[in-house]
Amino acid sequence: MRPWQSFFRRALLSASIGLAALLGGSAAADDTHVLIVAHPSLAVSNLSTEDLTRIYLLRQSLWPDGAMVVPVNREASSPVRSLFTTAVLQQTANALANHWQQMHFKGKNPPLVQESDQAVLAFVQKVPGAVGYVSADTPVGDGVKVLGKLP
């Protein structure tokens, strides 16, 4: 990673945490982590950052059992999406949007968007093959499979 990328990544993470605090959230330790969640029937027990990168950059569209991968994203203004984009995908929001636009022209749709952690959990619980992420301090319950905590 180039020095300016590392600086940008730290600055964006700090800004995301600061924005969450301004909006009434706390800057607790779990605000710097995301939980990776999936439909409970998924035959995978964990995903690496490389796996998530392939999924969210639309390079992997099938699970090992042949089921369709259905990635779910938070909305663009979400601090947890900013964290996921920079820390896990190692992309800027603009670079990621440009990538998805190029993939759209190749016939691939970008990940679906949900407006809250609870909406991501509800979607993932109901849609086979779905995978998403939520803030690590979000209670997930029994209806989804937790595949990891990142970064």
Rank of each mutant, 00 (worst) to 15 (best):
Q125L: 04
D142H: 01
L89A: 04
Y133A: 07
L89R: 05
R59M: 04
G107Y: 13
A20K: 02
L19A: 15
Q114S: 07
K126G: 09
A97V: 03
A38D: 01
R74E: 08
A122K: 11
S116R: 03
P40Q: 15
L121W: 02
F8K: 14
R2Q: 11
K106L: 14
D137F: 04
N94G: 12
D51G: 07
S48C: 10
G18N: 12
A21F: 00
A20F: 03
P79I: 03
W4Y: 09
V80Y: 13
K106H: 11
S45Y: 08
S77H: 10
L13E: 15
Q102G: 01
L35Q: 07
W100C: 02
E50V: 11
T86P: 00
S6Y: 02
S16D: 08
V44N: 12
L83R: 08
M1G: 15
S26E: 15
W4K: 11
T49P: 03
T92Q: 07
D142Y: 01
N46G: 13
D142N: 12
S14M: 14
M68C: 07
S77R: 11
N109I: 00
S82C: 10
V34N: 09
H99L: 14
N46Y: 14
Y56T: 04
Y56S: 04
N109L: 06
T86C: 15
L150Y: 05
S16V: 06
D51P: 06
L58D: 01
D117P: 04
S26L: 13
Y133E: 04
R9Q: 15
K108H: 08
W63F: 09
S116F: 03
Q5S: 12
L22N: 12
S116V: 04
T92R: 07
Y56E: 05
T85Q: 09
F8T: 12
S14D: 15
L121H: 03
S26Y: 10
T49A: 14
D137T: 09
S41H: 02
Q118R: 14
V146S: 08
R74G: 06
S41M: 06
S77A: 15
D65F: 03
L35N: 02
S6M: 12
V127Y: 06
A15D: 12
R74I: 00
V88R: 01
T53N: 07
V80L: 10
L62S: 13
G66R: 08
G18K: 09
N46S: 15
E50G: 14
S26G: 15
V113S: 05
Q91R: 14
V70R: 07
A93G: 05
D31C: 11
P111D: 08
S26K: 11
V69I: 14
Q114M: 10
F84C: 09
R59T: 00
L35G: 02
L13I: 05
M68S: 10
D117Y: 05
Y56V: 01
H39P: 01
V37R: 02
D31V: 13
L121C: 05
E115C: 00
R9P: 00
L19D: 05
H99W: 14
